[in-house]
């Protein structure tokens, strides 16, 4: 017989990500999507939350380039508004770090970095 061990939403999110899925929470009462994962909806305390697959689509809300001495090591850090509403910090790849622009449509993908599964974004094809 297998014992089911309850895990918190942070561990649950990481587990989904490891299995290749970008999942976010939604409050059953208000319909609002929530990120980062929490035990209850911020502002209301509603704890009737469900996990739903994020569409992965979003738009760049703000962007910066963290500059390194060796400029080839400089990298992008961006805030992205998900189509579902919540905002996430991430990196938009496959562009010059300074080529990431506010308002740019982007799409999520999951990248394996060593042992970690990391949520990243790339600019939407043809945009």
């Amino acid at each position: 017989m297998q014992s089911v061990k309850e895990i918190g939403p942070e561990a649950q999110y990481a587990q989904y990500l490891r299995s290749g899925r970008f999942m976010i929470q939604r409050c059953r009462k208000t319909g609002q999507h929530i990120f980062y994962p929490r035990v209850a909806e911020p502002g209301t305390g509603h704890d009737d939350l469900e996990w739903v697959q994020a569409s992965g689509f979003g738009v760049v809300y703000a962007t910066t380039v963290v500059r390194r001495k060796n400029d080839s090591e400089s990298y992008n850090v961006a805030l992205i508004d998900l189509a579902e509403g919540p905002r996430v910090m991430s990196r938009v790849t496959a562009l010059e770090p300074g080529g990431v622009k506010i308002g740019m449509p982007v799409e999520a993908f999951i990248e394996q970095q060593d042992e970690q599964s990391v949520l990243m974004f790339k600019s939407v094809e043809g945009s």
């Binding site: 980062y36 910066t64 805030l79």
Partner: peptide, 25 residues
Amino acid sequence: FPYEDTYRPFNPPSSYALAASRHMH
């Protein structure tokens, strides 16, 4: 805070830089 740390923002400057980028926009 893995939801930000993962992307290595150089904080605090990067957080304020994000605000500045948006204010300029």
